[in-house]
C-alpha cells in the first residue's frame, strides 16, 4: 500500500494533508489524538472513502487497482462497522465467511464458543468487539485495518488480539490513540 501526498477535506475543513507512506508486511500503527483523521485515513486505505487529493496505490504497482476493484482483499474492524444485530454470532461469522469464501472462524480461539447462538445485539460491548475482530481476521486476505481494536476488550481479549495480530501473514495497520503494545514498526501520525 503506497500513499502519495494524500489529503482529505470535508467542505472547508481539512482533516489532513500531505500524508505519504509505504506499507509492507508487519504491524503498523497510526497514532494520534481524537479528531486527527486516523479513521478517515483508514477508510481511504480500505477504499471506502475517496481522498480529496493525492494517490493511493494498492497491492500491485504494475497493475493499478481502482477502489471498486478492492472488495474481498482488505478487511477492517472499526467502531463504525457493525454486524447484523438480527443474526447470531455464528450466522454473522458464516455469512461473512461465505462472502469471502473462507471457512467459518474458530470461535474457541476468540473465546466466543459459549456465545455463538446469541444474537449480536444481545452481546456485551466487549464480546461484540471480539465478534467483529474475529470476523475481520477470518475474512482478511491481504491486509487488515484495525481502528481502535482494543476498545471494550478485557485483558483476555487484548491477549487474543495481540496473538492474532502477531500471527497474521500480511500487513496489519492499527489506528489508536492509546498504544497499549509496542508494535514492531510504528508510524507516528
Amino acid at each position: 500500500m503506497v500513499a502519495s501526498n494524500l489529503s482529505k477535506s470535508f467542505g472547508s475543513k481539512t482533516i489532513f494533508a500531505g500524508v505519504s507512506f509505504d506499507i509492507e508486511d508487519g504491524v503498523w500503527a497510526i497514532i494520534g489524538p481524537n479528531g486527527s483523521g486516523k479513521t478517515t485515513l483508514l477508510r481511504i486505505m480500505a477504499g471506502l472513502l475517496k481522498a480529496s487529493s493525492g494517490a493511493m496505490e494498492w497491492f500491485d504497482k504494475e497493475k493499478k487497482h481502482e477502489r471498486f476493484q478492492l472488495p474481498g482483499r482488505i478487511a477492517m474492524c472499526s467502531p463504525d462497522l457493525g454486524l447484523y444485530k438480527e443474526m447470531t454470532v455464528f450466522e454473522n461469522a458464516r455469512f461473512f465467511a461465505d462472502l469471502a469464501r473462507v471457512p467459518v472462524p474458530d470461535f474457541v480461539a476468540w473465546g466466543l464458543s459459549g456465545h455463538i447462538g446469541k444474537r449480536y445485539h444481545e452481546l456485551s460491548a466487549g464480546l461484540k468487539q471480539r465478534a467483529k475482530l474475529m470476523t475481520a481476521f477470518a475474512v482478511a486476505r491481504d491486509v487488515i485495518l484495525l481502528d481502535e481494536p482494543e476498545q471494550h476488550l478485557d485483558a483476555e481479549g487484548k491477549a487474543i488480539l495481540d496473538n492474532m495480530v502477531s500471527s497474521f501473514g500480511g500487513p496489519v495497520v492499527i489506528a489508536t490513540n492509546n498504544p497499549w503494545k509496542e508494535w514492531r514498526k510504528i508510524a507516528q501520525f
Binding site: 477504499g47 471498486f68 472488495p71 478487511a75 472499526s78 457493525g82 454486524l83 447484523y84 462472502l99
Partner: peptide, 13 residues
C-alpha cells in the same frame, strides 16, 4: 448500522 461498509469491503455493491 455500519453493515453497508462491511459489505462494500467484501462484495461489489
Amino acid at each position: 448500522e455500519g453493515t453497508a461498509d462491511q459489505l462494500r469491503l467484501r462484495v461489489p455493491m
